[in-house]
Simulated assay, not measured.
Amino acid sequence: MFYYYQQMTCTWGIRAQAPADAQYCLSYGISDVQNTQSRTISRKNGWRNVTCHVQDVGFNLFNVMQICVTELGQNFSKLHCIDLTPVNYYKVSPPINIRVKENEVIWDEPEGNHPSHGFYYQIQVTKRSTNVMKIENVTSNSWNIENRKQSYSVKVRARINNHLDFSIWSDWTEAVIAEAEPNNFQMLIMIAVVFAFIILMSLVIFTCRKSLDKLWQPIPDPEMKFKGLFDYHHGNFQEWINAKSLGAKIPEECITVTVEDGIYA
């Protein structure tokens, strides 16, 4: 795999029959040309595979390249080689600055120096309401959001346009959320429903209060109607009735008196 124009990593396995003291010599260069670089790697602690890291391969990645690994033992030497075109195994860094602007998802090209200035993109779109995911190929650094009434999770990746058969896709970017735009009509309906509910509840409260006021009329105070019942008889109605009966005035009989001059009869 090749990165950032001149960096290379490679991995190979170690056969089970290889002796523990075997060493491995990595060499690479342009095919049919004398190898330009080589290094020797010792097997340690029972390694079953080996990884190499080369910072600067030092030639054009569009040229056919030969990579060889020589297995070296005390009494033997085995050579394993592969020919490849580096740009077919070139992996760019992910796109950057992915963002949502109006009806589009927009991003910038991968950072760094690459063997090609043209890129292909793929966008991974996941509908958040159903978790249904789809991947679309994109030739520009933007993607049009077809339905803003839905909310989406969006990731983007890139590969170089090497004008050959294929190249390696970058890793996916971190997900960016494209929120659904608010529906103004639905918002108006919601406001109208809330307003109608408030009015209805106000009418219910007002009606219930009027009904309760009629049901719960104030009880007259008997103290105002029956003088003396509570002041002198402590609310004892029978005692108050008897007292009123005893206090009633009986008319006295009249005695006729004749009055004459100086004489009373």
Rank of each mutant, 00 (worst) to 15 (best):
S140I: 01
V125E: 15
I82S: 15
W172K: 03
T139F: 11
I160N: 11
N75A: 03
S93N: 07
V132T: 13
S151G: 10
Q150F: 11
P86W: 00
Y89T: 01
S129A: 14
W143C: 03
T173C: 01
I145S: 04
E109Y: 10
V125M: 15
T139M: 12
L79S: 07
P110T: 09
S153Y: 11
R128M: 12
Y90E: 02
S93F: 11
N162F: 04
N137G: 08
P95I: 03
R159M: 13
Q150H: 02
K127R: 10
H114Y: 01
S170Y: 14
H163L: 12
D171Y: 05
D171Q: 09
P110Q: 11
S129D: 12
K149G: 05
W143I: 01
E111F: 12
Y121P: 03
V105E: 08
K149D: 10
N141I: 01
E111I: 08
E109G: 02
D83I: 00
E71N: 01
T139Y: 11
I123H: 09
K134R: 00
Y152R: 02
F119V: 05
D83Q: 14
N88W: 09
L79A: 05
C81M: 05
Y152D: 11
Q124D: 10
E111W: 10
W107M: 05
Q124M: 14
